[in-house]
Design a protein around this nucleic acid. Structure first.
Lengths: 175, 175
DNA sequence: TATGGGTTGTTCGAATTTGAACTACCGGCT
DNA sequence: AGCCGGTAGTTCAAATTCGAACAACCCATA
């Protein structure tokens, strides 16, 4: 549990560094950066609000706010969803993309310098495996027993609601 | 960097779970819990505002706010610092302590279930080492080169400003 | 002992975040 | 066609965070 203590302070400090660097370097919030990154990696550089929210792990209202902000800066645009009248697609604009590309290097540098580079190859692999598993477990909407005696497994399938024929590749991956 | 992606979502999800459990279980915020935990582990269950802020990794103003909140609930008390006229000591009250003891088990359960228990002993050890090192690096006030070609080392010494002769032991450790 | 740079904690305003309430739309069934 | 439980996004109020500005205090030095 000294592990937990360490994790806590490290994550907080890292978040600070990231926020600092990002803000100074491009006026973006870490939350905003994550949103842009997710969009850049999505087919057609667009995503339904709800899925984007789930993907970035923010509340729906939080996303609405942030998208509004990004829209005002011209980095993202809102488009009506063709397949669903109520739906809204957040689309990464060209300006948004170039902003992301311009910002990514510095951001990556921070993450690497303070976290990734501290790991040996094995540790990195372990970390990936661990965090992925943890994320998978916590991703299930509910019914998880914190005491840990349930044993869920669930996988989720996604449907193409974007009306795109899969463009884009890896985008400016989260990093 | 899939490591970073995984880390990001996992940490966000974990934070949510923690917040949820904590709020439902005792009306505390994770930030508040961390503050109480830090205090419980401090000699005399008290700490100077600034050090507490640094320890919990929150801004000074943030701590002031949170301590005010906790004080209003009677979990913490503000005491004038004997050795420094401007200083303020945040003291964990008995009610605060029992609240913490009452809350800790559930909190620990969540952290373990979703993160710790996912790790093998070696991974746990690795995680501890890594996060500790990262935290140490990022803790230095400034002058750190994200590109990583400086090589600082610095250690910090603390002075006993609490006017206590070292009571308390491990407290309800951060867990 | 007066001075000046540095520290301490609080206050203030601005930015974010979240959950609840709400409106509009989707789809299966009758 | 009409109904109904459910979903999508937005709006709203409340809570929290941070940084800058402040007033009070510490202390090494002239």
């Amino acid at each position: 549990m000294s592990a937990w203590m360490a994790y806590l302070t490290a994550s907080h400090l890292l978040e600070r560094r990231i926020e600092e660097q990002l803000k100074a370097d491009s006026g973006l919030t870490h939350a905003q950066y994550e949103i842009l990154a997710k969009l850049s990696a999505a087919p057609g550089r667009r995503m339904r609000m709800t899925e984007l929210a789930r993907s970035a792990v923010v509340s729906k209202s939080g996303l609405t706010y942030q998208i509004g902000r990004l829209e005002k800066r011209g980095l993202v645009a809102r488009v009506a969803c063709p397949s669903d009248e109520r739906g809204v697609l957040a689309v990464l604009t060209d300006r948004g993309m170039s902003c992301l590309e311009k910002t990514a290097p510095g951001h990556v540098a921070v993450v690497r310098a303070f976290l990734i580079d501290q790991l040996t190859p094995e540790e990195l692999a372990g970390m990936t495996r661990i965090m992925s598993k943890a994320a998978a477990v916590m991703a299930s909407p509910y019914g998880d027993d914190p005491t840990g005696m349930t044993g869920t497994r669930g996988t989720r399938g996604t449907t193409n609601t974007t009306g795109m024929t899969s463009t884009a590749g890896t985008g400016v991956a989260g990093v």
